Simulated scan of single mutants.
Amino acid sequence: MAIKKQFLKSKPICKVTFTVPAAEAEEVVVAGNWNNWNTKAEPLKKLKNGTFKGTVNLESGQAYEFKYVVDGQWQNEVEADAYTWNDYAATDNSVINL
């Protein structure tokens, strides 16, 4: 798994590209507090090499919690900037700092 951040000079926006190697998976979605944890809002596209990839525009200067949903199973990003406890889910969420 990987995260790439591209900060725009003209706007306070960061293009965040999420990459998830999941060749056996049918569907990978990124859900986070920027999309109200919607498991349909940010689907990643499956590439020929079996990796799922997608880009989301997020406001710079913020921290966002997120997780991947791989065929219905919630997973953290191993390269996240941090992790934070979520009482509702009784597990950690990945954090990205922009």
Rank of each mutant, 00 (worst) to 15 (best):
Ala25Lys: 06
Gly32Thr: 07
Glu27Ser: 12
Gly61Arg: 00
Tyr83Ile: 09
Tyr68Ile: 05
Leu47Tyr: 06
Asn38Val: 08
Val78Cys: 04
Leu47Gln: 10
Gln73Met: 07
Tyr64Pro: 03
Ala82Phe: 15
Lys5Arg: 11
Tyr88Asn: 11
Glu79Gln: 08
Gly50Ser: 10
Pro21Leu: 02
Asp81Ala: 08
Phe52Glu: 00
Ala41Asp: 11
Tyr64Val: 00
Tyr88His: 04
Val95Met: 05
Glu24Ile: 06
Asn86Met: 04
Ala2Phe: 10
Thr19Val: 15
Leu98Tyr: 02
Leu47Phe: 07
Val95His: 09
Glu59Leu: 06
Ala23Pro: 15
Glu79Tyr: 05
Tyr83His: 08
Gly50Arg: 15
Gly54Ser: 06
Thr51Gln: 14
Trp74Thr: 15
Ser94Arg: 03
Lys4Ala: 07
Thr51Tyr: 14
Val28Trp: 02
Val69Asp: 03
Thr84Val: 14
Glu65Asp: 07
Ala89Met: 02
Asn76Cys: 08
Ser10Pro: 01
Glu42Val: 13
Ser10Thr: 06
Val30Glu: 03
Ala63Asn: 06
Lys11Tyr: 07
Ala80Ile: 07
Val69Gly: 04
Pro43Ile: 05
Glu26Asn: 09
Cys14Thr: 14
Gln73Cys: 04
Val69Ile: 15
Met1Val: 12
Val20Trp: 01
Phe52Ala: 03
Glu27Gln: 12
Pro43Ser: 13
Val95Gln: 03
Glu77Met: 04
Leu44Asn: 01
Leu98Met: 13
Ala2Cys: 10
Pro12Gly: 12
Glu77Ser: 05
Pro43Trp: 06
Glu59Phe: 04
Lys9Trp: 05
Trp74Ser: 14
Tyr64Ile: 04
Asn97Pro: 08
Thr55Pro: 01
Glu26Thr: 11
Glu27Lys: 12
Lys48Ser: 08
Gln62Glu: 04
Glu42Asn: 12
Lys46Ile: 09
Thr91Asp: 13
Ser60Gly: 15
Lys15Pro: 01
Gln62Tyr: 14
Glu65Ile: 07
Val70Glu: 01
Trp37Met: 03
Glu77Lys: 00
Gln75Ile: 01
